[in-house]
Design a binder for these strands. Structure first.
Lengths: 215, 215
DNA sequence: TATAACGTGAACACCACTGTTCGACTTAGC
DNA sequence: GCTAAGTCGAACAGTGGTGTTCACGTTATA
């Protein structure tokens, strides 16, 4: 599903929430959100002037569409999450839970890697509740997968689902950090994450699955 | 080992690097570093005015001892790490690697939890290299333990030591976040972390150890 | 083509923090 | 008790971002 520009601006209380926007206005908003994602991805402290410049738009124009810095960050984050959801929609989570989780990681860690710096910006500007709300989509996906894996005896049941999901995200994020620091290469990341998480999810008393680099 | 005030100020290029400091000056510095740790722990964006006020000291006095905000943050972080090292010194890392790791987690996750916000402040103000340098002490401890565990066949060897250490820290940090968000209680944290990490460290093909809440 | 919406740069006020200087006062240490 | 070191508040200048207004030029759309 595409990012709904009008719907977004309406729900955030920007000017002209109901009035139909002109085509060039929509183009400007699109450019700003895209530039914000890029700039904040590079530097979480990027100023609105910088974002406007990157969008090829005047600073005043930015303020005409977004009431505050928080709104810009929110829009950029929403966009990134929506894009991520589109990608995750293409991942087959049926069948063997272990293989499904491996497929999810293969697709998901890259998204986490790309949105890492953007998330830092969001954490500074947005409330924890809002960030959690934005992640509801991806979170529900993993929760359902983990729940199914537990029901089928593939994943451990001695720890809460929320904790397992949390561990998955923590490991993916830390892998992104390691890559940024040059201590891990991108091509090995998915294997390492998968091997680690599958082991962490294994029920006590059960042998850890052999991933052998091939998923 | 106690935090060496003179040594620290010397190596950071503050004024009077060689001259002996008066007792009241040392007291001021101590109060500032302590207040910085508290304030930055509460709010990573705490201003120097706020820190000086909390230390019961004039803002000018703070600048008399620390040339910049970065120096204050560095001092607070160094202090926290030193304190942590003192605690970790009391942990017995000999014997069964699994039990040793459990003991390390029991002592270490609490330190991570307390220094969480302080670390955020450090990440904004200090270079990644400096932060890594500060963590060299604790990191070496875990690396040695993991290396021994691998040699004894208790931990997996199909993933790099650095990655395993990284996973341990990532899980501890995420547990701290969960507690702060109210989704995990402090009394369960150590069990969850231990169960997760021991499983993640288990060699492929080997059964995951049963922790059973008792370590 | 009329007009309302949009885009624009320049300028403004505002704010919070940083880092420095000054002169006067207090205190530690020999 | 003398002196140098330390402390203090007030006030300063500088910085960089935020959010707003204005007057004017441009463009989409009916």
């Amino acid at each position: 599903m595409l990012y709904d520009l009008l719907g977004y601006c309406g729900c955030m209380g920007s000017k002209n929430s109901t009035a139909a926007k002109r085509a060039d206005a929509l183009r400007s908003i699109e450019a700003i959100v895209q530039a914000a994602a890029e700039c904040l991805g590079r530097n979480p402290e990027a100023s609105l002037s910088e974002i406007a410049r990157a969008a090829g738009v005047g600073r005043v124009t930015l303020y005409a569409h977004f009431a505050s810095r928080a709104e810009v960050v929110d829009a950029a984050m929403s966009r990134a999450i929506d894009r991520g959801n589109d990608v995750l929609d293409t991942v087959d989570l049926a069948g063997d839970p272990l293989l499904a989780l491996a497929r999810y990681i293969e697709a998901g860690w890259h998204l986490v890697d790309q949105a890492r710096a953007l998330l830092v910006a969001a954490q500074r500007e947005l409330s924890a509740g809002r960030i959690r709300e934005l992640h509801a989509g991806p979170a529900a996906r993993v929760e359902a997968l983990v729940a199914r894996g537990r029901a089928e005896g593939a994943f451990r049941t001695d720890l809460p689902i929320a904790w397992l999901v949390n561990v998955l995200h923590a490991v993916m994020h830390s892998a992104a950090e390691e890559i940024r620091a040059g201590r891990l290469t991108s091509d090995r990341a998915a294997d390492h994450i998968t091997a680690t998480v599958l082991a962490a999810f294994t029920p006590p008393g059960t042998p850890v699955p052999e991933t052998g680099g091939g998923a």
